[in-house]
Amino acid sequence: MIHTILLLFLLSPVFSRVVYVYNWSEYIPREVIEEFEKESGIKVKLSTYDSNEILYTKLKILNSGGYDLVFPSTYFVEKMISQNMLHPLEKEKLPNISHLDSRLLGKPYDKENRFSLPYLWGNSAILYNRGSVSSEVSSFKDLWKPEFKKSVLMLDDMREAFAVSLKSLGYSANSTEPKQIQEAYQHLKALMPNIRIFNSESPRQIFLTKEVVLGLTYNGDAYKASLVDPSLVYVYPTEGATLWVDSVVIPRRAKNKLEAHEFLNFLMRPEVSKIISDSVGYASPNRSAQMLQDDSIRLNTSIYPPDSIMQNMEILSDIGQAVFLYERYWEELKVQ
């Protein structure tokens, strides 16, 4: 018996400290994790998800535990804070905060960044194939043009789809007015003949195989697609794109909070944040990391939009009970 225990002890990994990380799929490069493990002796256990809903549902089932570090987007941070699911960050353990870009701090979903810090950020706007479009695309309204029958890609995300419709009607993407929401639904219904596919997992592939001509896409995906096929152009519609920030937070009942802080601080190192941003294709919220990046990325307006365009963007916020109305219309849209 003693021998077995001793053997198990000897065979147990060199790491005695672990951190359970739950992140978006393809959102953190292997080399970053390996570097951290080597340096700190903390084992990183990574699992991945592909929608905020799944993250939120899992954390709820696990009663805000199970993971030490998770990456919700904008309005989900707000939701988690209001439901007391998060642990306040211990800033004294995070000296690398000083590198962060002030433009991405103090956003409405967590005004003092008590619970969250930005990890990567981006926006959703229009990607189109210059070769297959007769005129310039400049507005969300262009998606409704009859010439694009069965050739539009829409993100399979209720809030993003409604944002396109609401904004093209001149309303806020966060509208809670039943009348406006209904109008937006009617407008989306009129868009259905043009929609070839709803997809938010890999819009890039669908553009590259030329199944669609234009559509709503995330900027990082658009950037990667345009590297393969330069005729794919990313434009910011005149109505304004939606801006989102994927944050890092620590669930309230996380077991390894110390390790989580250590990893979070590591992620905010300029060199590390640069590697992440370069490989994933989304913008770093880290001022010092941005300075280290290649001009082809740093000056690329689809990754780092100029201030004038950024001011025109809207952040999706938690809309409370109005979300039930959105859901109802979203279901109706997909039943027809």
Partner: peptide, 20 residues
């Protein structure tokens, strides 16, 4: 099918995950 029309299976999945 491009997730354009709901079938009962995805409908149940949505109720549990997305709409909660």
């Amino acid at each position: 099918g491009g997730a354009k029309s709901l079938v009962v299976g995805s409908f149940i999945k949505n109720q549990f995950l997305a709409a909660r």
